[in-house]
Design a binder for these strands. Structure first.
Lengths: 331, 331
DNA sequence: CGCGTTTGTGAAAACGTTTACATCCGAACC
DNA sequence: GGTTCGGATGTAAACGTTTTCACAAACGCG
């Protein structure tokens, strides 16, 4: 509440001097400094980030935005933790928003970002052609994409080798003797979906297994769509003996569909999903998954963003992290 | 980027007129309005929330803060969704922060809140005596507590009937014939822990079961502490035949400890935990839990906050929602 | 002792809004 | 035809900072 004005009045100096005391940088003699600091304490002064941000040129707000598609998805929550830890370490505050895999909400929050003059934004774009994000990038706002990438625009990017992850997962199932492997994709215009699909197809091709189109379904990354689509696949005349599912939430949904039908995993149907879960070990059965280093994705993205804020003209960088196939008992 | 200045120049009017067009409220003749609106579009004008917030008196920033202890805890994620939906519906932006059950972080973010001149804050206090939160309340900042309450200070509050939830859970175990019921609490100075403990003790008392102090352990709400403490209990000379655990994450940890020892649930040990999980149904075995209406907690808290922002002097209100015992197969 | 140089401090502008107040102009009134 | 009114628009102050520039005093030096 107390402003520089009031502090200055109490210390009988000018507001400029108070500001200088606050920002340490400038010269102010020890005696005055002491007086000012006393006044600061007396009034319980708290600087206004708002005023500061209004006055300052870009890149010094110490505020960045993170827009995640679904805060209830543990994968994104883990990314958020990574981002948050790196931000907090650099004393940056984080404006965290949940876009709910919804373009309108995303646009609303992107507007908030520019409107709040944040220093930069971390986000997984809605899909490869996300217009609102591209627009934002073009305004010169520092943007780091995580997990998903944009097709036409080059930005800083921290992603996971989705092709490799999917290839390994499918190969693992093939090795176990499966030839009818169902796949539940995510939204198809998302870069991760595209890459994972490639990995699956290549693994099949390499093993000389023909692709059964009816075993491929596209979901929307939500639990419910996993349940529905897994149900469809299991109810097929010639159902798959294994399921490869593109994210954690849909995998949980699929598991529910399997249980509902009284089928046994992995005897009746094997399952491997993308994204590890803290409780994957305690699921019935413990789930084989492609583990993504989500925390690191977040942390590195934030560090990358800080670099870009410091040096806005540096060329965009891509970091690709490796996933890991964690074999438990669902395969 | 474009400011009122530039728009005004292009439309050949004063900035006041532009501002009036923007805020609809005031009179401006149709012709000028059209000209201004064209200029607005041409320049792709985006208002600066920062400047606006600096200028305006309290309560009109259309920005509120939410500080949650752990973004990776599905219970809080669900609360966050409730808050976020209600905020978005009212066109409020949400400054979401993760305090990591850490007082320093919490203080940092509380400072950010005042410093950012948010209109209000929703949070579960760290514990009943959380000094930083009390301080904030005393500054007159609208604050709504969720889930946990403060001991000495009366604020708006949306909570769950924890006593009832715990009482029901313990009674259910007693009914199933258990007399040695282990309990893993959370941090003991948190209001929810205190209430749940009361519920457990009363249920035992009502059934005439003496309390075994060695069956009561205090954790920190994290998965790891659930694993550790459940391990301790199970390794006791005279171990409990049932476990009542105070939150979801510790329950998952406890489940791991049980599996690790090769014990069967519920044959060797029954388990009931607080907080439902989207995948509780797919755990091994499907978990009996006390379900809290987390989404509603969040939604109602945000609505309450909006009311307080509109009418800062209204007396504090408490809403208590009912939990529900969901019986699955772990008991 | 006079003159440049340094050092500490203050005055004021700027950031982008909102809004109270002033101004202008035409219409309505008597 | 003045006077008054009211409606549309402009002017300028204010919000709380940072920062440039100016200024005064002290200092160093020949």
């Amino acid at each position: 509440m107390a402003s520089l004005q009031e502090v200055a009045a109490r210390a009988k100096v000018s507001i400029a001097t108070v500001s200088r005391v606050l920002n340490k940088s400038d010269k102010v003699v020890a005696e005055t400094r002491a007086v000012v600091e006393q006044a600061l304490r007396d009034l319980g002064y708290r600087p206004s980030r708002v005023a500061r941000r209004l006055r300052m040129k870009d890149g010094r707000a110490h505020l960045v935005g993170l827009i995640i598609p679904d805060i209830q998805n543990p994968f994104y929550a883990e990314i958020a933790r990574g981002v948050e830890d790196a931000a907090y370490a650099a004393e940056y505050a984080l404006l965290l928003c949940n876009s709910d895999e919804n373009l309108d909400k995303e646009r609303f929050y992107l507007d908030v970002m520019t409107s709040e003059s944040v220093d930069g934004v971390v986000l997984p774009p809605f899909d490869e052609t996300d217009a609102a994000v591209i627009e934002l990038v073009k305004t010169g706002m520092p943007v780091v994409c995580v997990d998903r990438s944009l097709a036409k625009v080059k930005t800083d990017l921290v992603e996971v080798d989705n092709y490799r992850g999917a290839f390994d997962a499918a190969s693992h199932l093939i090795e176990k003797g499966h030839r009818n492997i169902g796949m539940i994709e995510g939204r198809t215009h998302v870069s991760t979906s595209r890459e994972r699909r490639r990995g699956y197809l290549d693994a099949l091709a390499e093993a000389g297994i023909p692709v059964r189109k009816d075993l491929i379904r596209a979901g929307d990354f939500r639990q419910e769509s996993g349940r529905l689509l897994a149900g469809e696949l299991l109810d097929l005349r010639k159902p798959p003996t294994a399921l490869f599912i593109f994210n954690n939430l849909m995998t949980v949904g699929a598991l529910a569909a399997v249980h509902q039908r009284g089928l046994k995993v992995p005897k009746d149907v094997a399952i491997v999903g993308f994204d590890d879960l803290p409780w994957a070990e305690s699921l019935d059965p413990p789930l084989t998954v492609v583990r993504q280093p989500a925390y690191d994705v977040g942390r590195q993205a934030m560090e990358m963003l800080l670099k870009r804020i410091m040096e806005p003209t540096r060329p965009p960088v891509t970091v690709r992290l490796l996933p890991e196939l964690v074999i438990r008992r669902s395969t």
